[in-house]
Design a protein around this nucleic acid. Structure first.
Lengths: 160, 160
DNA sequence: ATATCTTGACTTTCCCTGACCTTCATTTAT
DNA sequence: ATAAATGAAGGTCAGGGAAAGTCAAGATAT
């Protein structure tokens, strides 16, 4: 946890705990000031950490009385999993894969133990292939596992 | 006399003595500097010495504030699982894999849901490789997953 | 002779900033 | 009352820098 972006990310996520509605409003300059960084740093954090894939939606308004609004999205599980499969596509990097797996856990689609299993299964060091092939195989494995989870839940009534 | 790689390996292993959680974070360049070697030497040591078979799990991140994280897996307790890992070896067929996975379920090492996940992950159709390569990758994935399970169970109660 | 080690050049990923741009509300001038 | 000016937000983008990754080729050891 060395870099500023991680710290700001954690800070914002903590703010959500105090906001029951799941909608957060911040001021870019104020925040930049608080962390003694360039205002665009806030944009960087938002675009890299609070993306749609990670379950957030960001809106903003400029001018006097402007704001940045961050919304934590609610999901419908079946749709959610289909979207993830689509997002994965034919090939996926290790870091993208990790983000998805963590999201699955945050959304309580998988258990912590399953998260560890998944991470291990798609880890670079456990897939001794060329980077290109590795990303392809990783995509296959992830999609297969998510499909298996969907199928399992569909057959068996839904408790985790 | 021992070569550099051996020395670095021993050094890293000693670092674990001071880290009770079993998770170590290093900086590649700093370490290379310390040993007056090329940074890629560190990668060499990691890929040859800190492998899954030897009970380590490595993750990393690039860029400012980057790191290399080495996790010492807690795997020594379970003889049954160790035997299975040994049996898997460097390569395993689909049918052997399936048999092992079912056995794990019968022994209550994994849940039914995890059984499905595992089966999906090592299924032939999800590993579009030559039969030879597929068996090798399958072996890696299975060992990685079993190791992850052992580690997870061993850590339960302790902190991450 | 073979396997293992070591290096260096090049690549990729990620972080952070500063200069410049756009939008909006409010105030001021006509 | 309207139009222009002002100031206060937030947005964008390119670029520099800081890591770690890859690979092939040469060096060393067995």
């Amino acid at each position: 946890m060395a870099n500023l972006s991680d710290i700001i990310e954690a800070f914002i996520k903590e703010m959500f705990d105090d906001i029951p509605g799941g909608i957060l409003e911040i001021q870019r300059n104020e925040m930049a000031n608080q962390f003694r960084c360039a205002p665009s740093q806030i944009n960087y954090v938002l675009t890299t950490r609070f993306t749609l894939e990670r379950g957030y939606f960001v809106e903003s308004r400029r001018g006097g009385g402007g704001y940045i609004r961050i919304k934590k999205l609610k999901i419908r599980e079946d749709e959610f999993l289909r979207d993830i499969i689509e997002y994965i596509g034919e090939s996926i990097s290790g870091s993208d894969a990790k983000a998805i797996i963590e999201r699955l856990w945050e959304e309580a689609v998988i258990t912590e133990r399953e998260m560890r299993i998944l991470c291990a299964a798609v880890n670079k060091y456990n897939l001794p292939l060329s980077p290109l092939d590795r990303n392809i195989i990783r995509a296959r494995i992830m999609k297969a596992i998510i499909t298996a989870i969907m199928d399992f839940e569909a057959r068996k009534g839904g408790e985790l």
